[in-house]
Simulated assay, not measured.
Amino acid sequence: MPNILLTGNKQVGKSTIINKIIEDYPGGVCGFKTVMKQTPRRQFFISEFQKSAAIIANSVERTRSYPLPPISSTFDNEGATILKRCFIQSPELIIMDELGLFENRAFYFQKLVHKGLNSDIPILGVLKDKPSRFLNSIRDREDVEIIRVSEENRNQLVKIVMSKLLND
């Protein structure tokens, strides 16, 4: 089964591609997404599709941007719960949008990500374009295809990725 991870610059359309694929995907989909919300301070959340969100990182004050202190326990608790639920449901596709630097110390979550990649269920996700031990461990896998998204190719990638997922 294909494991396809999109990478590229910020705001180039990686999550938009995933959302469009989910809309037309013929089988069951399970997984998570991370989103940023600008409240009085910048906060990042992990969210199961259409479910509640849990904070994974937040800035100390609105004017500070990086580095944001990650909350690893959120991945090891809420993130792990989402992935374990996916393994039980056994959907036709698991979404991991996005795998990044906040997970560097969430070792249980990392283990479950690799369990997903080892499974017979295809993974579609986003891999942050930064080096880290965790992200590199995913890049080094032979069963992962990494596709770089750019402004030039993003409009064609929905069809290309969908075809790969459906083995057309």
Score class of each variant (00 low, 15 high):
S137H: 07
L99D: 06
K37Y: 05
F87N: 13
G27D: 09
L135T: 08
I46Y: 10
T7M: 08
I56C: 04
K130S: 10
E152D: 10
N9P: 10
K33N: 10
L124F: 00
I88W: 07
D129N: 15
N77H: 07
D168W: 11
Y108E: 13
E145P: 01
F134Q: 11
F87R: 15
V113F: 02
N9F: 12
A80F: 00
R133D: 09
P40R: 14
V29E: 00
G13M: 13
V35G: 08
P67I: 12
V29P: 00
R64V: 08
Y108D: 10
S150A: 01
D97I: 00
S65M: 10
T74R: 02
Y25V: 02
F87C: 08
V149K: 01
P40V: 06
N77Y: 05
E103C: 06
G79Q: 03
G79F: 02
Y25K: 01
E145K: 13
I94P: 02
V35W: 03
G116F: 12
P2N: 12
N58W: 07
H114E: 11
Y108T: 11
R42M: 12
F107M: 07
P26A: 03
E61D: 13
S65F: 11
R139T: 14
I146L: 07
T39W: 12
K20G: 02
V158K: 15
L112K: 07
A57W: 04
G79V: 02
R141D: 08
M162Y: 13
V60C: 08
R133G: 04
I71Q: 11
N58P: 00
N136T: 15
R85V: 00
I18M: 01
R42D: 05
K37V: 07
F109H: 06
V158Y: 02
K115F: 12
K20V: 00
P40A: 09
N3A: 06
K159E: 14
K51F: 03
A80D: 02
R105Q: 14
T16Y: 10
R64F: 08
F45A: 04
E78H: 13
Q38S: 10
K111F: 09
Y25T: 03
E61M: 10
P26H: 03
V29Y: 00
L93G: 01
L68D: 03
R85E: 08
V60L: 14
L99Q: 04
F44E: 13
F49L: 07
R42S: 08
I21N: 00
G13S: 11
P69L: 07
E103K: 05
P91D: 06
D97A: 01
S65A: 09
F102S: 05
G79S: 02
G116N: 11
I22M: 11
L68W: 01
A57K: 03
Q110M: 06
M162Q: 14
N155R: 15
G8E: 09
E145C: 05
